[in-house]
Design a protein around this nucleic acid. Structure first.
Lengths: 189, 189
DNA sequence: GGCATTTGCCTACACCCTTTAGGTAGCCGC
DNA sequence: GCGGCTACCTAAAGGGTGTAGGCAAATGCC
């Protein structure tokens, strides 16, 4: 009886790949087991349950995304930083749609706090260092940026901008321009 | 053998309520059948399959949302229209989280075109009549608005702004202020 | 190197959801 | 009040989740 060498780590990584190939909500314990040529029940020694698998994939995606963002942000400021950060999100979502969907998976607060969620918030805030925004407008701006990035990427992924001019790349660039302009001229309450 | 009086119409409406109560992806043919005290197989005379049910709920949600938006937009212009439109989305999502999730359900292009998708696009564009934006910037702005509304609402629903100051209502109002300011001072390319 | 322990994967099973096929009971028009 | 349509049924197959218990491969100990 040959051993497949399963570990939680390997399962989660394979789960993330599976998500990118077939979509995050098609990730099942059964499908993952098939991929390792193993019975589904065998995975339950490494994963508590299906929810656990999805949570771990989500945390993996969040961590990867935070790593990329940190790299992109290093040594940049102002609009450069804004554009780089935005591109990280968008590129990640396009390269890894399943993982991106996983990153939006609803986590319970403690799990989220233990993961890379905090780093994301810190980095978004870091971008604003290049602009002159005091609290509470800084928080409003953080939320706005998060909303635009997430919203745009998720509409784009679901095909919203596919069959109409101008192409999505152009819109994306202009949206980033607009956000930069907005942050430089943030309205008074 | 008493008859429950099932129709596609009633099933879809009940499905939408079910979605609001337990979440869109917990909407199953079985759960819906239980709600009518009927066997799951019986629903297949009224629904092609589970996907069909979800699609119909999505179309219902899109139509409801478009109706509300049309009502809110009538007789308003400029920032008034912008704020009213934004509130329609947000309020609908908070009153009917399941339906809102349904509205984001991926539809195939023909189905989407046959539904209320077109009205949504037209209305977003109508808001911009109050601002001085020529093409292609108008399209960029439409996409930006859609992204912000969708993104904000979806982050809010997933609990992103729950446990931090300032509260989400305040941020929402300031985000709308900011969008208004941005549309009035849209940057040149 | 032989033996015990641990652990990795197995089979078997129970339960739920989906979907098809074919049957029966209620209701409507005549 | 009878025929026929329609609404709902039972039965069954297929697949996903998850638990319990078993055997065999790897590991550790002397």
């Amino acid at each position: 009886m040959a051993r497949a060498g399963l570990t939680t780590e390997r399962l989660v990584r394979a789960g993330a790949e599976l998500a990118d190939e077939v979509g995050f909500d098609q990730v099942t314990v059964s499908a993952l087991a098939r991929r390792f040529d193993v019975k589904a029940a065998s995975l339950y020694s490494h994963l508590r349950n299906s929810q656990d698998l999805k949570t771990r994939i989500a945390l993996l995606a969040l961590a990867e995304l935070a790593d990329r963002a940190a790299l992109a942000l290093a040594g940049r400021a102002g609009k450069d930083a804004l554009a780089a950060f935005a591109d990280v999100y968008r590129d990640y979502a396009r390269e890894h749609p399943g993982r991106y969907a996983a990153a939006r998976f609803r986590l319970d607060p403690e799990t989220a706090a233990a993961g890379a969620g905090v780093r994301h918030a810190q980095m978004t805030r870091a971008i604003l260092r290049g602009y002159d925004l005091a609290e509470p407008d800084q928080t409003h701006a953080v939320r706005l940026l998060g909303s635009v990035f997430h919203g745009y990427v998720s509409l784009e992924l679901s095909g919203g901008f596919d069959h109409s001019a101008p192409d999505s790349d152009t819109s994306w660039a202009r949206v980033v321009d607009a956000l930069d302009a907005l942050l430089r001229n943030w309205p008074a309450p």
